[in-house]
Every structure is written in structure tokens, then in C-alpha cells.
Design a protein around this nucleic acid. Structure first.
Lengths: 78, 78
DNA sequence: TGGGATTTGTTCGTATGTATC
DNA sequence: TGATACATACGAACAAATCCC
């Protein structure tokens, strides 16, 4: 999975979809932290603001919760 | 009403509160557009992204609606 | 006790794309 | 066509919280 700037779909939405898929597949596991914002920036070649936007979507969807200074954690599926 | 960067409360929240008060008082009227992002930037000395954040709060609260390419409009109170 | 590294939160600056008038 | 305005996206900087040594 990678980002395509020419696809019309916003980059932050593409990144959110990548993370959703990784959560759904179990690649990102409950009670474990996602890669840090810095790591996501480097891995996907996007800006920090774009990462924040994607994470905000996952928070609104109830997929993750954030602990400031620690990381972004995956909720256990109900 | 003005922004105080030393108050601890995020500037975007302060700006949102200013706009809420102006809506509540009737200074900003239903079906009329808010001042543009650029105007808010100049009037309150904040950044465009901060204005966007404040406006996003008002949207989530159902106080305003956005017409892309036109402006941010105040909902009529129910 | 303290300092450094890491991570998220917030803010500011700038630019481009798209839609409306 | 040009001006206006929101959405998106890049980069940069500092603060706050956390962790480890």
C-alpha cells in the first residue's frame, strides 16, 4: 500500500484507509501503538499535518485512542 | 473580544468562542456569510489553519454550513 | 534530581487545486 | 477572465507529556 497523489482521493484519506486495513488485518494489533507520526511521515512520504488528519479520522471512527506523549493505540474490537 | 495567546486555551477554541458569541448576539446573522478566512486572519492575528480549525468546530456543532467556493454561512436557529 | 529523546498537540507560513461569482 | 474562498498539502517550530538513563 502506498500513497498516490494523482488519484484524486485526498492523501490523508488514503493514509487513513491504509491504517484501517492494517488494523482490520491484525497487522496493527489492539492495545498496541501505531507507528509514530514521525515514522508515518518518513514511511509514506507525507507531511505531518497529513498524518494528523488521517489519525483524526480514525479517532472519530472509534478505531484508536491517543495518549499524548505516548502514542496512538488501537481499540479492541467490540 | 480578542485572542490571548497567553491564556492557555487554544487559539482556535478562543476564536470559535468569539464567533459563537457573535452568532448568539446576532452580530453574525443567519443565512449570512461569516467574515472570510483571510479577514479573520487579519482581524484576529491568527493563521489560516487556526481559522479552519475554529470553523470546523462550528460546523460540527451545527452552527454553520459551508458552500464550497462561496463561504461559511450561519444556520437559522431552530 | 535532572536531562535527553520520543511523541502528540498546536500554531504559523506558504502553496496549489477547485469551485463559485 | 479574474477575483474570491474553501480544501488540501507541504514545511517548520515550539509546548506538553512521557519515558529512560
Amino acid at each position: 500500500m502506498s500513497i498516490d497523489h494523482e488519484r484524486g482521493i485526498p492523501v490523508y484519506e488514503q493514509l487513513a484507509e491504509i491504517l484501517r486495513a492494517q488494523i482490520a488485518s491484525g497487522e496493527l494489533q489492539p492495545e498496541r501503538a501505531l507507528p509514530s507520526g514521525k515514522t508515518l511521515v518518513q514511511r509514506y512520504g507525507v507531511a505531518r499535518g497529513t498524518v494528523d488528519h488521517a489519525i483524526a479520522l480514525l479517532k472519530e471512527e472509534g478505531l484508536v485512542y491517543v495518549l499524548k506523549g505516548k502514542g496512538v493505540y488501537v481499540f479492541k474490537r467490540s
